[in-house]
Amino acid sequence: MIPAPVGYIRVDSTEAALAALGEHGDEAKILAGGQSLIPLMRFRLAAPSMLVDIAGITELSGISVVGDTVSIGAMTTHSALEHSGELAEACPLLAHVASVVGDPAIRHRGTLGGSLAHADPASDLPAAVLALGGTLVASGSNGSREIAATEFFTGFLESALGADEMLTGIKVPVSTGGWSYQKFNRRAQDWAIVGAMVAEGGAGVALVNMGATPLRASAVESALAGGASSVEAAASAAEGTEPSSDNNGDAAYRKHLAQVLTGRALRDAGME
């Protein structure tokens, strides 16, 4: 499988990237780590006419913790998240989730921003940012704006990013309360059939691959807030979800898994 012919520009600043996007419009695509984009290009399911490679924008990589906020550059690799001692202390859920993305080789190249912008509901990291109540930072021709994770994922592989915008980083609150990620798949390297994520002692519960976008399991969250046990709360995990059916699971099985995995995640996170 061989990509269609494509143009390529490498930029070393966000401004240059935005300028390139402005120049090439809809036909341009940001190339971050490429771990999701290049397979799509090989199948010619994606055939942008111009790639804007942002790997050279050094200021987009890095993790910093200031006060109650963890800021992470969009080009920070999964591997960097996984191995960051600072992140392990400030937000262990995110560090852990990064460590179960794909396989080590994918984690060396894949980036947090790329994963979020790709907006795949079966991906691990989008749900983590959602569970953590994170904010995504986007830059565009009109300057920079912050988008709540809850507003960011708008559809299957669709996000709130405009065609002239790029993701530059995220902010998540420092979160050391009980957490868990229960990823269920048939092979370790595969996407989650369903995943259940619990952050901050149940304040945030999110689901992977339970619909067109990563989802907050709001029924579970409110049940917990109302004093429900993990078992009671997990029973509502599939409420309002419309999961797809594929080789590995139909919608009904996914809903069942969402309940089981949410229950396990809650208990793993320390809830009774």
């Binding site: 490429g34 290049i38 080789a105 994918i106 190249r109």
Partner: peptide, 24 residues
Amino acid sequence: SSCGACTILVDGQSAKSCNLLAVQ
């Protein structure tokens, strides 16, 4: 990028060379 037959080291770390462009 499922099989890993193309794995090489890029700057000392494993990477799947069928999942990278040469320009990268």
